[in-house]
């Protein structure tokens, strides 16, 4: 169920999944992704919303009710999502391995 047929994740999806190892709401995800990528990746709200809906459908993330403010939905990665992340990391490592081997550096 975790498989995504080895297809590459988009950068946004990769970082969203990575940011959801602990529960966050939409704005929290945007901030975390921006800081993780050293300010390089700024997720726009509409793009994030679309990605979250798809990830929920796939069962790679789930919603959790925030304690204080139930209006704001919080999201959390699922086991399936973790498996997808691991698979993607293996793929990225292969890319890097081949790049380093051939191009060096």
């Amino acid at each position: 169920m975790a498989s995504h047929d080895g297809a590459a994740l988009t950068e946004a999806v990769y970082y969203i999944l990575l940011s959801l190892l602990s529960p966050l709401h939409g704005y929290g995800i945007m901030q975390k992704v921006e800081s993780m990528s050293g300010g390089r990746l700024r997720l726009a709200a509409g793009t994030l919303y679309g990605a979250l809906s798809t990830l929920l459908e796939k069962g790679w993330i789930q919603t959790v009710t925030a304690e204080r403010d139930s209006r704001k939905k919080e999201y959390l990665i699922t086991d399936a999502g973790r498996a997808v992340l691991r698979e993607e990391m293996r793929r990225l490592e292969e890319l890097l391995y081949n790049g380093r081997n051939l191009l060096g550096g």
Partner: peptide
């Protein structure tokens, strides 16, 4: 509060 965009990748622009 920084730059404002609703879409940050090509896929979501295409969907729009």
């Amino acid at each position: 509060a920084g730059p404002f965009d609703l879409y940050s990748d090509i896929d979501s622009r295409i969907r729009h």
